[in-house]
Amino acid sequence: MAVPGTPIDAPPPGIARLRRHEWLSVLSRAVRTRRGTVGLSLMALVVAIAVVGPFIAPNSPTEFVTAPFSGPAPGTPLGGDALGRDVLSRVLAGGWLILLMAAAATLFGVGAGAAAGISAAYLRGWADALIMRSVDVVLAFPSLVFALLLVSIIGPKLWLIVLAVGFSHAPQVARVLRSSTLDISERDFVKAVELQGVKPRLIMAREILPSLITPLTVEAGLRLTYSIIIVAGLSFLGFGQPPPAPNWGLMINENRIGLQLNPWGVVVPAALIAVLTIGTNTFSDAVARVALGVGRQAEEITPLEGHVLVAPR
């Protein structure tokens, strides 16, 4: 905090602030890198299948149209699943909810993490201690275990899974945002507003948050991949959508006993999940590289340390 009476170089309004729409230029530059193009194309492919799929599925995803685990035949090009339902139709209908839940969990996790990280760094003192101790506690649970713990209490509700996955992302986001905020809150434009007597809440929302959109965008990209992995993983374990709903994660589990008879019921949903996560990861990697100014030569060691490649989930 600036001590009243301390001389401070009053910044000309609007100039000392960080560029507000930096994140848009980061995104558009990322799209134009090779990694960005590849990643976005893969993502777009799977998103298109998941979104358009339910409308063009030839059969009802829950109707029994063929023999269990029958191979590809006219009318059922990918064969039948464990109960004789059309694999192609179930694949087409089984992706949108995973995407929606992963996106919602990411938004919630990044939002909650940003709020916690910015408050901790800006308010300091007991608020900082309390928030960072809570962060340590949540970090002591592996994400999937945290979600399983909540599911075991309340039951496999979809909204609960979204909240649990988002909540398990929040600590990592909070840590990154806390260190960015510590840096930002020492800048002159923040000091200047403080001297005008603006409330801390408003300074955080109007001055600090807008300056941190770029790191937030980077975090959101990384978290999206992990959200998809955990949401699909919970479905695979049987704690997502209940049967008979078509769901890529659940399909892999239902059909794996018949791998020898009709592998398509496992291979196609697994491949779609793989292409999707590779796409989001490659794209978010491109965004992170552009945002953090990582060139091709200097590999990802210092600026990205603790940020991008530390550990899975």
């Binding site: 990694r35 991949t225 998809i228 992995i229 699909a232 993983g233 695979f236 994660g249 892999i252 794996r256 791998l259 020898q260 592998p263 496992v266 291979v267 697994a270 999940i273 793989a274 996560t277 590779i278 989001t280 990861n281 490659t282 990697d285 490649l309 899975p312």
Partner: peptide
């Protein structure tokens, strides 16, 4: 390595089962 970091464990596991244990 960039591609593999993105893969969920169950997709890796199922792929190995398909490659080495079943299909």
């Amino acid at each position: 390595s960039l591609a593999v970091t993105a893969l969920p464990e169950f997709v890796v596991a199922i792929s190995l089962v398909i490659l080495f244990a079943t299909v």
